[in-house]
Amino acid sequence: MSKITIADAFKNGKAFIPFITSGDPDLETTEKNVLEMEKAGADLIELGIPFSDPTAEGPVIQEANIRALSGGVTTDKIFDMVRDLRTKTQIPMVFMTYANVVYHYGKEKFIKTAAEIGMQGLILPDVPFEEKKEFSETCKEYGIELVSLIAPTSHDRIRMIAKEADGFVYCVSSLGVTGMRSKITTDVGAMVELVKEAKDIPCAIGFGISNPEQAKEMASKSDGAIVGSAIVKICGQYGKDAPEHVYEFVKSMADAVHSV
């Protein structure tokens, strides 16, 4: 089998990218959720490593972090889960967590292990362009792509960020934290265009996308849609029984994205 890359997720058209918090409510369920999401048509999986104080998250994902941590999940246990998952799936996967989880574990040890167990990338929402080097150099060394984010407030920073971006560019659709929104008012299409002028790299839009119509609209303006809170809400609602419900929801979202 050839090496899995983030680019694989975007090679057959628009990508649907679901996020779940690892260990919510336990790692067995997380594994099942990942496999169901793949079956439902997901193109890339964002696996959250819970953090005690996730400052970029709205209430839905904050609560998932608490559920996971109080269930006893740790970074090492999540690494073990990924090792097991990699014997069952070849879907591209990235970790989404906070700087301290990587830094305090030991930056090099974390990134090296992530690469060894078959992860493709890393998203750190509290590491902006100015602090990126501290992590990106180690990521490059081990072949992990550090995903850059741009926001509605980025304006003149978009070009600078895009030029050095790897994997894909995570376009934050709205001000504020993660969570479902009834309407996305930012001109994300214009943000995507600015990225593309600076670099030929896939752009996926996230924050606030909660239904197939929104997912379709966002995918039409970019290369893919990222959905977190809406899925995490289902995980919270159904717990160990979530996989079948996650499948249904992801299928509706992935189908909408792939129809573009």
Partner: peptide, 20 residues
């Protein structure tokens, strides 16, 4: 100029706040 006191400090915040 990058807000460092020795190794400490810096600007570890979401991109949304950087321009602010």
């Amino acid at each position: 100029s990058r807000g460092r006191y020795g190794i400490h400090g810096g600007q570890y915040i979401p991109e949304t706040l950087m321009n602010a």
